[in-house]
């Protein structure tokens, strides 16, 4: 192995794609104990149960452990949401990888053209970017990063990450 890093594929997470007017969204899911919506684009907010990623114009991803998925769907009730609120279950559409360790940043430098220096991509940084040529989500976590790609690319991503750390 070339770098001091641990790379592994993570288990499924519960993910809901939230799009629409933020007030309408907050109003619809007011009973869900969410963290405050991030106030800076491409950043996240978290509490004990949930992570909220601001990933685009009127676009967030809500993430939780998979065990909470059914309850989350019940509480958010996507099919009944008002017309200006789009809530879509996308748990299976994402595959997550963690890249953890002292050399995690080296792997990300190989994978992505994004500037992930702490001064630019802070502790709560989240952004879509190009990861080995594939659209992916880069998330800064403690001691490293997480990468999320569309699940069909998971095997390819694992292949690339292994090669980067060969």
């Amino acid at each position: 192995m070339g770098y001091d890093v641990k790379i592994q594929r993570l288990e499924l997470n519960a993910i809901i794609d939230l799009q629409g007017d933020p007030k309408a969204i907050k109003n619809w899911i007011k009973d869900v104990d969410l963290p405050d919506f991030p106030d800076i684009p491409n950043s996240s907010s978290t509490n004990q149960k949930f992570k909220l990623y601001w990933v685009g114009l009127e676009h967030w991803l809500l993430r939780a452990e998979i065990e909470l998925e059914d309850r989350l769907l019940e509480m958010t009730n996507p099919s009944a949401a008002p017309i200006e609120v789009s809530l879509v279950q996308v748990s299976d559409a994402f595959k997550f990888f963690e890249v953890i360790g002292p050399d995690a940043a080296e792997i990300i430098s190989i994978a992505s053209p994004i500037d992930h220096h702490l001064s630019v991509f802070p502790d709560n940084g989240v952004s879509y970017t190009n990861i080995f040529g594939i659209k992916g989500l880069l998330i800064r976590v403690n001691n490293g990063f997480e990468i999320a790609v569309e699940s069909s690319y998971a095997d390819l991503m694992a292949d690339f990450l292994q090669r980067a750390n060969a």
Partner: peptide
């Protein structure tokens, strides 16, 4: 226009 598009290609098999 107010329209939101969500890709679900790999959500559903």
């Amino acid at each position: 226009w107010q329209v939101k598009i969500t890709t679900i290609t790999t959500q559903w098999a």
